[in-house]
Design a protein around this nucleic acid. Sequence first.
DNA 1: GTGTATGGCGCG
DNA 2: AAAGCGCGCCATACAC
Length: 579
Amino acid sequence: MRIAIATTSAGRVAFLDPDGDLRGECDPADAPREVARLEAEAAPRWVWRDTREWAPALLEAGVRVARCHDLRLCGAILASSTAVAAAGPVARERPAWLPAGPAEGGFESEAAPAASVDRGPVLFDLDQVPEPGTAGSPSVADLVVEHDRQVHLAESSDRPTSMRLLLAAESAGALIAAELHAAGLPWRRSVHERVLEEALGPRPPVGRKPARMDELAAQVRRELEAPTLRLDSQADLLRALRAAGIGVDSTAKWELREHEHPAVAPLLAYKRLARLLSANGWAWLDEWVVDERFRADYVAGGTATGRWATSGGGALQLPKAVRAAVVADPGWSLVVADASQLEPRVLAALARDPAMAAAGRGRDMYRSIVDAGVVATRDEAKVALLGAMYGATTGDSGRLVPQLARAYPRAMALVDRAARDGEAGRQVTTLLGRSSPLPPPSWHAAQAAASQPDATVVDERRARSSARDWGRFTRNFVVQGTAAEWALCWLAGVRTRLAGMAAGGPSAAASGRVFERAPHLVYFLHDELIVHTPAEHADAVADAVRAAAAEAGRLLFGDAPVEFPLDLAVTASYASAGA
DNA sequence: GTGTATGGCGCG
DNA sequence: AAAGCGCGCCATACAC
């Protein structure tokens, strides 16, 4: 059962059920109440152009919906998926009113999907939420037609069950991204300020550097005998370092670390503090933390592989040092869980490599690889496995990969095949059916140039190098993308279980704060999530999180004998969540 | 002044 | 030790 929802040209909100009957029309201000009524009555899958058009207002009004189909995100997946290629280009053409997906490139586009030759006039900015009711907006009937088209594509694809799952998971992700923003990550301002003061000293007046940075800068200038040096200028700093006899080619910390000079330690300390100050200092706190909540702007489906991105606040790059500020409200707990060694386990399951799957059955896959006699140490196992997935050719990692290949030929064949496809300019596809973008026009131009009779050695080298680069991308794409699918299914499963759990009912909704009483998701980071819950429900939430992980494994891989164990902690603070 | 490229570094 | 994947953000440098 589906209900489509759109804004009419007259600025009203219209609802359409599957029989094509108008289920009603109302003022935008009444839409949340109407959605709540239909949700209770019919529990439909809501079909809308873009979750970002509807979810914020619904959540603001305390209304949550169980399911949706996001035409923008699903349309983007279907437009480029090789799994629906047989449907032909016409059926794959999206209507002009449907914005491109978040990871689809702009006009010059590395990501131009094969079938979308000309999408017509560009009505929407890529990052812009479409304005409801504007010229060119779809009618509610248009939405239904487009939904039928997308469903038809999914059903006629190579793997309808997988594609259905992917579209549902992607849409659930869009809802969850909106909910995470609405809920906010509990953030204790006082704790963050304490972290900053301990590291940097008291908050300086505007325009001044923190005391601790000034001290370190003075020390560096002394040691380098460069009394007027500005440490923030890479060029000046590099010159000063070289003048002092420190043979570095850049100011990067891994290069600096190799040198014994007395200026190095204070310089590295300075750089660490500078980073903390600029990325997560007082200014960040002022801008991003309001009422003890950090509200990030998540971008569901924001990367080519299907991982999320963020568009401000750096929610996916929170340094370990400031995570201490993520603290549950009084009487509440955080359930912090991450899927350990997710990508190697996904590779084992994806390749159906029996030997690697055996290693993936234990809690520590790297240890199992050592126990199987493939490499000598746990660290080698880790580096070798990452190297295989990333396409390492040199260094420790490149050296160890052949050993891994002998022990796990099927797994290695899978990623090698993906690399070869990419090098040849072909798309690769995840387990559920998300395909990699095609290489950009400049890439094809470089390949073409190298095959001309008058091609130079430089042409050939450049073509070869960009082919290899793209091959490493596609090699990793199948693993990272499938891992993202596992994580999305996990996340959606957690959400569904939480919705059915505790007292988030009418009283919370009526208060206008839908998350006031019930356990709810507050963070998601590729293979890790946090639920904020009344303490008395924490154990039940932990069970739900584990159950959802087991379910995600079954949904993707059926009975493939790989496990996806979680590191899980019930805690007051993110910082103390182990791992 | 505004816009873009790059180095550097945080996260997975 | 910093090779090999995916990101976002900041400061600096330089274009216009």
